[in-house]
């Protein structure tokens, strides 16, 4: 693989992704968001977190219904319980990783 080809890809994609993140902030400095947009955006955090989690619980099969990622679904159970009990992000992450390691060790996945 030619290094120049990889480099061009990196520069092109990097610039596009930078614009995606920065342009909304520049627009927000210039204009006041209308109320409906503010209300819409207030749901973005939970909607995006739920979508990210769901994407990891399902497995995409082109042209068919998604499968279930059993490994992730199983490991999610102790993670959710830890979140409710401890309310500590670090605890959730550690319990989740240990649970996943155990699931693989036991071959449950």
């Amino acid at each position: 693989m030619a290094n120049s080809y990889v480099l061009m890809t990196i520069l092109a994609c990097g610039f596009a992704l930078w614009l995606l993140k920065v342009v909304p902030l520049i627009l927000a400095k210039a204009f006041r968001f209308p109320r409906p947009l503010v209300q819409f955006l207030s749901f973005v955090p939970i909607a995006i977190f739920a979508a990210i989690i769901a994407e990891n619980l399902f497995v995409y099969h082109p042209g068919a219904w998604p499968g279930i990622n059993w490994e992730n679904l199983l490991a999610a159970v102790p993670a959710v319980i830890t979140a409710v009990v401890s309310k500590s992000l670090l605890a959730v992450v550690i319990v989740g990783v240990v649970a996943m390691a155990l699931i693989r060790l036991l071959g449950w996945g």
Binding site: E71, N72, A79, K87, L89, V95, G96, V97
Partner: peptide, 13 residues
């Protein structure tokens, strides 16, 4: 799985 676990924690919090 750390990243997924983190988003689970963040969603709940």
């Amino acid at each position: 799985f750390a990243a997924v676990a983190m988003f689970i924690g963040l969603l709940y919090l």
